[in-house]
């Protein structure tokens, strides 16, 4: 089996190389055309945001029982979200989503087979008993982005800082996926303090 894969890989590489040797591209015109000419297009996007850092960055977020929790402010909503997760309360977790984003998330999770049992298991392994620290608060357009860190089982800070986005609807702050494709969220420049990122695509 491995051999077959290897051979097909070699064949594939040869084929790709032959293709590249012809005109250097993965797709070609089927009518008569001249050799390709290359030029570069530069696209610049500017993002403005407002940054806040917690005065006490080592302070862990205090989670709450459902009866004490609310969604009145973005901070309340953040606490509710992770209180739901760490108390393994799936229906509460569902309630912390913005309706449209919840639909998108559920469709995606269903496609990937990520059901309730998966989430409860994941939360139990990765959130219960861990320290959650809020590291940054960012205001961007009408959204509040929090970057948080979940500790390792040892209690030390986790290696990843993760963003979560909240949007206000009526009087509640709810988790939103609206910025899922926004480069600002993907680069979260406040974590490294970077002001510019240059990416070259071949």
């Amino acid at each position: 089996m491995i051999k077959v894969i290897r051979i097909s890989l070699i064949l594939f590489c040869c084929w790709v190389e032959a293709g590249w040797a012809q005109n250097g591209l993965w797709a070609s015109p089927t009518y008569s055309a001249a050799e390709p000419k290359v030029f570069t297009v530069e696209i610049e996007h500017k993002f403005s945001y407002h940054l806040y850092k917690p005065k006490n960055p080592t302070q862990k977020v205090r989670l709450l029982q459902k009866k004490y929790a609310s969604m009145d402010t973005a901070e309340d909503a953040f606490v509710s979200r992770f209180s739901a997760v760490t108390s393994l309360n799936y229906p509460w977790w569902l309630d912390t989503w913005q309706a449209r984003s919840r639909e998108q998330a559920m469709a995606f999770f269903q496609q990937k087979g990520l059901d309730k049992a998966y989430w409860l298991d994941t939360w139990e392994k990765q959130f219960v008993g861990r320290k959650i620290k809020l590291k940054y608060k960012v205001l961007y357009q009408n959204y509040v982005i929090f970057t948080y860190n979940v500790s390792a089982p040892s209690g030390k800070e986790g290696f990843l800082d993760v963003p979560i986005v909240f949007d206000k609807q009526d009087k509640s702050w709810l988790v939103s996926l609206d910025l899922r494709q926004s480069p600002l969220l993907r680069y979260s420049p406040w974590v490294e303090g970077s002001e510019m990122e240059v990416i070259e695509y071949e």
Binding site: V38, L51, D76, P183
Partner: peptide, 25 residues
Amino acid sequence: KTVIPYQDEGNKEFTLVQKFKVYQQ
């Protein structure tokens, strides 16, 4: 109520420059 005291770091800007190679025939 969750109240977290913050240090206001002010307005920030982030610029993303994407350079695309375009092959034209």
